[in-house]
Each structure stands twice: as C-alpha cells, then as structure tokens.
C-alpha cells in the first residue's frame, strides 16, 4: 500500500465521519462546521488527485463562501436555538431501508459491472490553472458563458427575494 492510498483512506475516513456527524448532530452551527471539515478533506483529496486549482477553488468557494453564507443565515434567523423534533413515524425505517438499497446498488455496480483502463500518464502541469483555462475557454466556452448568465440570474433572484418592500406613504 503506497503513500497515496494511505492518504486517501485517511482523508476519506475524515470526510465520511464528518458527513455522518453533520447529519446526526442537532445543533445546526455544529452541522455547518462539520460540513466545512468535509469540504476541507475533499480539497486535500483533490490535491492527491492532481487537481490543485480545484482544491483552491473548493476552499475559497465552498469552505470560504458557501459555508459562511450558511452560517450567516443560521445565525441571522436563530436556527441553532430552534427545537428539532422530527415528526417521522413510519418514514424513518423506510429511509434506512432505502439507504441500504441505494448503498447495495452502487457498491454492486461499482464492484462488478465496471471495467477501467489502467491510469493514464499525466504531465506535471495537469490540473493547473493554465491547463484548466485552456480547456475551459476553448472546448467549454459556451457552457462558461451560460454559467455567467446563471450567476447573474441567481444574484438578481436573491436580491429580489430578500428585499423588503418599503411601506407606501
């Protein structure tokens, strides 16, 4: 077992444990902080997989931007002090049954049906900003532009949803 595999197992274990803790814990602030742990472990995992640009994007956008937004909203509406009593009767065992089915299905397909070629050789600049940029702005230029429209729509939408209407006087 080489160093990469050991690193993967450690990071994967951390990510999985933090994910389970995030779902289980009742305090939403703790949930958000566990989510940050998941995202950080994933970012280091990206470094193991030769994706340095994505690792930095993961930290800045996910751990830095999205989770701060989550924490901000949780504290803004005081959600960490709300009582979380889920009124689930027969749904809970059903959910665990569906979980077991989904897990068995994915593991079965991954273990039996798929055949993969051996890993390809990659250059030293694989996954760097220059290489990603070349692919992004040549092959995927149209999706990139569509993404900008999507971000604009999201920005306008979030402002329109949260703005308070002034009382007419």
């Amino acid at each position: 077992m080489n160093l990469e595999t050991i690193l993967f197992l450690v990071l994967g274990g951390v990510a999985l444990a933090a994910a389970i803790a995030m779902v289980i814990t009742r305090n939403m602030v703790h949930s958000a902080l566990f989510m940050v742990v998941v995202f950080l472990a994933t970012a280091v995992l990206y470094l193991v997989y030769q994706a340095p640009l994505l690792a930095m994007l993961q930290i800045t956008v996910y751990a830095g931007g999205i989770m701060v937004l989550f924490l901000f909203v949780i504290m803004l509406i005081g959600a960490e002090k709300m009582s979380h009593v889920e009124n689930l009767r027969w749904q809970r065992p059903l959910a665990f049954g569906l979980m077991a089915a989904l897990l068995a299905e994915t593991v079965y397909v991954a273990a039996t049906r798929l055949q993969f070629p051996p890993p390809a050789a990659i250059g030293p600049d694989f996954g760097g900003p220059k290489a990603i940029g070349l692919v992004l702005f040549n092959q995927y230029l149209l999706p990139f532009e569509v993404t900008s429209v999507l971000l604009l729509a999201a920005m306008v939408g979030s402002i329109a949803l949260t703005v308070r209407k002034e009382k007419s006087r």
Partner: peptide
Amino acid sequence: ARNFGQLDGQV
C-alpha cells in the same frame, strides 16, 4: 479525470 488523464472531469 486523473485516471483517464483528461481535464474534462475537472472542468
């Protein structure tokens, strides 16, 4: 993306 040596997955 790493296994196939292609950057499309990362994009």
